[in-house]
């Protein structure tokens, strides 16, 4: 079962490894249909790290799942394009898409325990991609699995290959998931909050592992997180999401130094890191809207200190400026002065 021929060839060096354009995802809920992802665009080249940053529920995971074709049945992609190696995967058949999963696009899930099969030894699970995509024998796949387990830092991999997921700690499970995800050397690795449930010192180990693997394999990394500090330290570019939309994007350094959307500014200001004890933190009032109640004008209008009539009437589009940055705010220019 050799299926490699059906996988499109690698992109030219400067072409994006992943290019998402105007992605829209609708959800069926008991309260009716709602839009969970609304016109999300971004692209990332090999060797680079792009962060998708936003608060819980803003649509980060839905975006990731749409890109890898693993959306829940309650959700539909209703628009946009997801291009890898030049082809739009949204136009492909399910079989074609499955062939991309592993050698081209791969994902590390938020919750390692539910992402692993609880009743199968981990060695078998890690070896599986080699059997499906490369046609290796069970024994060869097993050897590959042990190699990968060694690479991601599982001690005594030969013995541990026979263990089941629940016999590993949270940090070890995350390593196993990463091993599976990089097994076939993907162009693009999506990591959805890969360290959120882990302790600080283990988080640091996992982030280091991801970085080493990325360097060694020249993968494009899409790092999904709600942690601004992780973005600051780890990503080249950032896409800031709010209520299913992209409100700002650009190189991390520039965006964090001089945000052009009031929400990005509000997030950066409310980080306690720079605050002085005893002085109030500059908090953003209110909370993000429910999906069923996203306002028609600007999505951020209820919480924005700069809001005015036009913001209520008209949804700002993501406007690109010459410096590789964009923001979706009618009054971005004023923010610099505010």
């Amino acid at each position: 079962m050799t299926t490699n021929t059906a996988v499109p060839s690698p992109p030219a060096a400067d072409a994006p490894a992943l290019d998402v354009e105007g992605l829209c995802v609708d959800l069926s809920t008991p309260a009716g249909r709602v839009r969970a992802v609304d016109g999300v665009s971004f692209s990332v080249r090999r060797g680079r790290t792009l962060a998708l940053l936003g608060e819980s529920g803003c649509g980060k995971s839905m975006t990731a799942l749409s890109v890898v074709g693993l959306l829940d049945p309650a959700a539909d992609v209703t628009g946009g394009a997801v291009r890898v190696r030049g082809d739009d995967t949204l136009k492909m058949s399910p079989a074609q898409r499955r062939r991309l999963a592993g050698p081209v696009l791969s994902i590390v899930f938020q919750d390692a325990l539910t992402a692993l099969n609880p009743v199968q030894p981990v060695g078998r699970q890690i070896g599986e991609p080699f059997r499906i995509h490369r046609g290796l024998s069970r024994r060869q796949a097993h050897e590959k699995a042990i190699e990968l387990m060694t690479r991601v830092g599982i001690p005594e991999p030969r013995q541990r290959a026979r263990s089941y997921p629940h016999q590993f700690s949270g940090g070890m499970r995350q390593r196993l998931l990463i091993a599976m995800a990089v097994a076939l050397d993907p162009d693009v690795l999506i990591a959805d909050e890969p360290t959120t449930a882990l302790d600080v010192t283990v988080q640091a180990q996992i982030m280091r592992l991801l970085r080493d693997l990325q360097d060694e394999r020249e993968m494009a990394l899409v790092l999904i997180t709600h942690d601004l500090a992780v973005v600051a330290q780890r990503a080249d570019d950032v896409v800031v999401m709010y209520a299913g939309t992209v409100v700002e994007n650009g190189p991390v350094r520039d965006v964090f130094a001089d945000p052009r959307h009031p929400y990005t500014r509000g997030l950066l200001d409310s980080v306690p890191e720079h605050a002085v004890r005893g002085r109030p933190l500059p908090a953003v009032p209110g909370s993000p809207p429910e999906l069923s109640a996203v306002p028609t004008g600007c999505v951020f209008q209820d919480r924005c200190p700069l809001v005015r009539e036009r913001c209520v009437q008209e949804r700002p589009t993501l406007r690109t400026s010459g410096d590789g940055r964009s923001a979706a705010c009618h009054f971005s220019e004023e923010l610099a002065r505010a």
């Binding site: 608060e55 709600h226 601004l228 005893g278 933190l281 908090a283 953003v284 009032p285």
Partner: peptide, 15 residues
Amino acid sequence: LDLSVQAQVLNVLSE
């Protein structure tokens, strides 16, 4: 809590 909301609650506690 999300970051933007966390700051509100920390402020309440300090106050």
